[in-house]
């Protein structure tokens, strides 16, 4: 890989969230993968953002109250 092709830290940081969201093309993803394999600071940043996102994802689940369970059962029983 030439120096021109190599990504610098500021470019990686600018694209990191979209990279973690899977919203960048394969060529750019490969460049960021290469950078993260070599740059400890950016790698740590990526790990942090990934871990924070995993914690956020835990909010996607909450025990439904009995009233909702009863309501859903009544709805489905009527189908």
């Amino acid at each position: 890989m030439t120096e021109q092709e190599r990504m610098h830290c500021d470019e990686v940081v600018a694209s990191l969230l979209e990279y973690l969201d899977g919203e960048i093309d394969d060529a750019r993803r490969a460049l960021i993968d290469d950078h993260l394999a070599e740059c400890r600071g950016c790698f740590s940043r990526a790990e942090f953002e990934r871990a924070l996102r995993d914690r956020m994802r835990s909010l996607a689940s909450a025990p439904p109250p009995d009233s909702l369970r009863r309501r859903l059962k009544a709805i489905i029983d009527e189908f």
């Binding site: 996607a60 689940s61 025990p63 439904p64 009233s67 909702l68 309501r71 859903l72 489905i76």
Partner: peptide, 27 residues
């Protein structure tokens, strides 16, 4: 059910509204 209610709760910020949202989505 846990995830439907959890996500609805984050969207609406209100338990009763979350129940309404899940019910409407299920219908």
């Amino acid at each position: 059910a846990d995830r439907l209610y959890g996500v609805a709760l984050r969207f609406t910020r209100n338990g009763a509204a979350a129940e309404d949202l899940v019910s409407e989505a299920v219908v």
